[in-house]
């Protein structure tokens, strides 16, 4: 058998799962979609002693509106997000990006919460969550707390979750008025982890000047990389070809540190970042002009 042996428990309520987490701490490894954890276990890179399978906890699978936020339960599959009308209507950036996550068969099992808790630097969902300033609900037996995306991601496969907590919900605030969005990436095969990718947001004022921009990248650092200094420079400017080119050069030149891989050198990843920044800003800007 491939994985090392472990004890397996599949509680059917969140309360039971949190009680197990309180009792066993970090040993009580959550099994969500298993699409990252089980490959790691098959290679024996991961050898958890206790798996708490969250798949029977239906109360963690939902997508609903609350005020001006979209709330998504951690165990909602990536496919369910991809097919949901509320996501299409209220979170166009998320909706546009989910189909880039792995392959359809993986998205049928893989969960939104799993993808975010795993925090692979090459993953799409952390980038989108950071660009949208999403909030994360961490729950323990004794209560809950909300963590802003900026604090949730703490580097290479590391997030702000205590050994007594599971991630249970993600809240995505609506986009501001006159905001355009765009996600793009370059992967060797559709569905593979990308060599570089970007989520861009552009908010325009009534005169069409950039009020706020957001540029967040995947696979060019140890987590989602927020090129905030570049984005700040766009504020107060018209989004011209020249401005987009300058932003692309600055973001790629000053705000990222790609590691490179057998498929792409760091220089090539930066080249991709430059091209993608220009293209994504252009699309986000065009969409902002027609957004309400």
């Amino acid at each position: 058998m491939k994985p090392a042996s472990f004890k397996y428990l599949a509680p059917d309520s969140l309360a039971e799962a949190l009680a197990l987490r309180a009792e066993h701490g970090d040993d009580a490894k959550a099994l969500a979609g298993g699409q990252s954890l089980i490959p790691a276990m098959n290679f024996r890179v991961a050898q958890p002693s206790l798996l708490v399978d969250l798949n029977k906890i239906n109360e963690l699978r939902y997508i609903r509106r609350e005020g001006n936020e979209l709330r998504i339960g951690a165990m909602t599959t990536q496919s369910a997000v991809e097919r949901n009308d509320l996501v299409a209507k209220h979170q166009p950036l998320l909706f546009e990006t989910v189909p880039f996550v792995a392959h359809p068969q993986i998205r049928n099992r893989g969960t939104l919460g799993g993808s975010l808790a795993h925090a692979d630097p090459a993953a799409e969902m952390p980038v989108v969550a950071l660009a949208l300033d999403a909030k994360f609900k961490a729950q323990s037996k004794d209560g809950e707390r909300w963590i802003p995306a900026k604090e949730f991601f703490q580097g290479f496969f590391t997030v702000d979750l205590q050994p007594t907590e599971y991630l249970t919900e993600i809240a995505y605030p609506d986009l501001p008025a006159r905001t355009g969005w765009c996600f793009m990436e370059v992967a060797r095969r559709h569905g593979d982890y990308a060599m570089c990718g970007i989520a861009a947001l552009v908010t325009l004022d009534a005169k069409g000047i950039c009020e706020k921009a957001r540029l967040v990248y995947l696979n060019v650092g140890d987590g989602p990389v927020d090129a905030s200094r570049t984005a700040a420079l766009l504020t107060g400017q018209a989004i011209t070809d020249e401005a987009m080119r300058a932003a692309a050069d600055k973001a790629a030149g000053d705000e990222m540190n790609p590691f490179g891989s057998v498929h792409a050198s760091p220089e090539y990843q930066k080249h991709l970042a430059r091209v993608l920044t220009r293209r994504a800003l252009k699309t986000a800007h065009e969409r902002a002009l027609t957004a309400h």
Binding site: Y8, I38, N108
Partner: peptide
């Protein structure tokens, strides 16, 4: 290893039998 679970295509190498 793709099979159908509840009508959806999934990887049977990324699931435990007990699941």
């Amino acid at each position: 290893c793709t099979i159908l679970m509840d009508g959806q295509a999934v990887r049977s190498c990324l699931m435990f039998a007990v699941q």
